[in-house]
Design a protein around this nucleic acid. Sequence first.
DNA 1: GTATTTGCAAAATCTTTGCAACCCT
DNA 2: AGGGTTGCAAAGATTTTGCAAATAC
Lengths: 130, 130
Amino acid sequence: MSAARKSVKRDAILALLRDVHCHPTAEWVHSELRKTYPDLSLGTVYRNLRVLTGAGLIRSVGVVDGQERFDGDLSAHGHFVCKGCGAVLDVALPEMDLERLTDGPHGHVTGVEVRMTGLCRACMDKDIQP
Amino acid sequence: MSAARKSVKRDAILALLRDVHCHPTAEWVHSELRKTYPDLSLGTVYRNLRVLTGAGLIRSVGVVDGQERFDGDLSAHGHFVCKGCGAVLDVALPEMDLERLTDGPHGHVTGVEVRMTGLCRACMDKDIQP
DNA sequence: GTATTTGCAAAATCTTTGCAACCCT
DNA sequence: AGGGTTGCAAAGATTTTGCAAATAC
């Protein structure tokens, strides 16, 4: 099988995802880590985001405007996605609701993602002036 | 502005989405409607799915395995996505929970999507035998 | 008659992958 | 040495878009 060795680049990707709250895209992670690792390739970022997601160390928040977003915060929470700017913000969820949802008649449930869509404060302000 | 005229193809796409429960991709809609409209182009399907989504007549269920899935059922419900086969199934949600969620401190919420991930019955059975 | 809609094909994006070189154990 | 990891670039896949012809009103 694959995946097991230590890797500076992968560790950096994981650390970055745990640090930030912006739910980045692969591209964002790449350009951010290039500051420290100028030779980091975009392919490596994609590969490691996959590996880390598969290992359960990070999770995917889904696709926003054509690009997948990732989250290093594994605690139970939902997300607010702004249609205007694409920002993804954390939303606290009442625990009990999720517990109830995980009883599905369709199969074995391994995860629940709650996504709210709308306009964030900043974009609401922008849209007022013509 | 755009969007307003009657169109046989668009009506057919809307009707199909309202009829089926499989939460189709653009490609599936295309190949399905080709049986009735052999000259229907994939571009037209993409364009109309966009138009219909924008008009609020259908909604996007999000991207599954790289392809966007659509839903003609606008009633409040969640979705169960099977990691094995990509099937998307409707899930009933307790109404009250959603009401509570739409009070977000992040902006104006226009929609909530609950997505559960896991293995459907059929795929659970498959995975048992080596 | 004018503006929308469509087919077709090219273009644009995002993501994956093959391969040789490299690094870690 | 042996196998995972990376850079690079090419390939893949999905979705978008430009344009002329067809269509609706």
